[in-house]
Amino acid sequence: MDIVLLLFLSSLLPGICTYAVPRKDPTLRFVALGDWGGLPLPPYTTRQQELVAEEMGKTVAKLGADFILSLGDNFYYDGVTDVSDPRFKITFESVYSSESLIKHPWYILAGNHDHKGNVSAQIAYTNVSTRWNYPDYYYDLAFTIPGSNVTVRLLMLDTVQLCGISDDFHDGQPRGPNNLKMAGTQLEWLEEKLQSAKENYLLVAGHYPVWSVAEHGPTQCLIHTVEPLLKKYGVTAYLCGHEHNMQYLQDDQGIGYILSGAGNFMENSRIHKDDVPKGYLQFFQGDPETMGAFAYIEITPKEMTVTYVQSNGKCLFQTMLYPRTF
């Protein structure tokens, strides 16, 4: 099929995928992956983690990437103890070891399981690893799409500091921040960054989802604190993990909610489907037989293409978002 026709069809029918065709126009590319943190006991990895890592390597080798975005729960189940913890090697360095993944920076944020351990050790690991980039609990990144003057801002949040540790054995909702002052400071920082952002694409990333139909459901804390800011300042997309599946939701303002939490386990429940506004959910995949997936994102001056890629290389879903209008 002619590539122009393919691109036209994909713009009309999300799910017709063009990700296997390398782009020649100016493009910023990255993989978004959450909940990939292996196991605390031998063999220290899951088969799903290994298969997802292998396909990430193949996809990045074929199509390229500027970075990898980690969406938290980097080490199951209780994070790491210190900067010399062997889990850094056996869960991260030794698993994501293909040549294409080694040569690209990883930008890290923490999940609830990371906060059960020593997050400051994960931050300190930035000074040990050549590809692990985690400068602070929350931080911002700025990019220019290569070969253009179009810009992208990515704000990295610590949603556990904002909302607290989730109770997986109760209702899955965070129980409130441990430090109200720190949570307030981060929220003020977020609004200042959003208010001043003039970039063509504005992305926010955190571990907890704003919207989810799955086991944990919408994060009420984020709906009250973060979602109003996403709407007020015209954010392009919010990226997250936490739920062990893949979801794409889009609100009535056009904000995309990219959930990519299938790096290590799969969970197929849609128990909270009635807690998400009607029409928001556009894609869901939690079938354990898929053995995991990740999101591959390409941003050009004209559009941002989001592709969900299964661990066997199959395209599960594809959709587009567009630059902000001022």
Results as ranks from 00 to 15, higher is better:
Tyr44Asn: 07
Leu5Asp: 12
Pro177Phe: 07
Asn264Lys: 15
Gln310Ile: 07
Gln250Met: 14
Gln173Cys: 03
Pro14Ser: 06
Asn312Glu: 05
Pro105Cys: 10
Ala237Glu: 00
Lys273Ser: 13
Tyr233His: 12
Leu6Phe: 07
Asp274Met: 11
Glu55Arg: 14
Asn179Asp: 15
Gly261Ala: 13
Val21Met: 12
Pro26Ala: 12
Val204Ile: 10
Thr151Leu: 08
Val128His: 11
Pro323Ile: 01
Arg270Trp: 02
Gln285Pro: 02
Ala293Pro: 01
Pro301Ser: 09
Ala65Trp: 00
Thr307Ser: 14
Leu155Ser: 09
Phe88Asn: 08
Pro288Asp: 10
Val128Ser: 10
Leu51Ile: 09
Glu298Cys: 03
Arg87Ile: 08
Lys62Leu: 09
Leu202Val: 03
Val4Pro: 06
Gly72His: 04
Leu187Asp: 03
Ser97Tyr: 14
Gly38Asn: 01
Lys278Glu: 14
Ile299Pro: 00
Thr91Arg: 08
Ser97Arg: 14
Gln285Ser: 11
Asn112Met: 11
Leu222Gly: 03
Arg131Ser: 06
Trp132Tyr: 11
Ser97Pro: 09
His216Asp: 10
Trp132Pro: 01
Arg131Lys: 15
Pro86Leu: 08
Glu192Pro: 03
Leu9Glu: 09
Gly184Ala: 12
Ile297Phe: 00
Gln285Asn: 10
Met246Asn: 02
Pro43Cys: 06
Ile102Pro: 03
Leu41Val: 11
Tyr233Glu: 05
Leu63Asn: 11
Tyr238Pro: 00
Asn127Lys: 14
Ala61Cys: 08
Val4Ala: 14
Gln173Tyr: 09
Asp275Arg: 14
Tyr308Asn: 03
Glu298Gly: 01
Leu33Asn: 02
Val150Asp: 04
Ser94Lys: 09
Leu230Phe: 02
Asp140Gly: 13
Asp167Phe: 15
Glu191Phe: 02
Met156Arg: 05
Ile223Tyr: 11
Gln282Ser: 11
Glu191Val: 06
Glu191Lys: 08
Tyr125Phe: 08
Ala205Ser: 02
Met291Ser: 13
Thr219Pro: 00
Gly313Leu: 14
Pro209Glu: 05
Ser97Ala: 15
Gln220Asn: 14
His170Tyr: 15
Glu54Trp: 07
Ser166Pro: 09
Asn118Val: 06
Val83Cys: 07
Gly261Gln: 08
Tyr134Cys: 08
Phe265Ala: 10
Tyr76Ser: 03
Ala214Pro: 03
Val60Trp: 06
Ser260Thr: 00
Leu13Phe: 07
Tyr238Ile: 00
Ser148Pro: 04
Val235Met: 02
Gln285Ile: 10
Met320Asp: 11
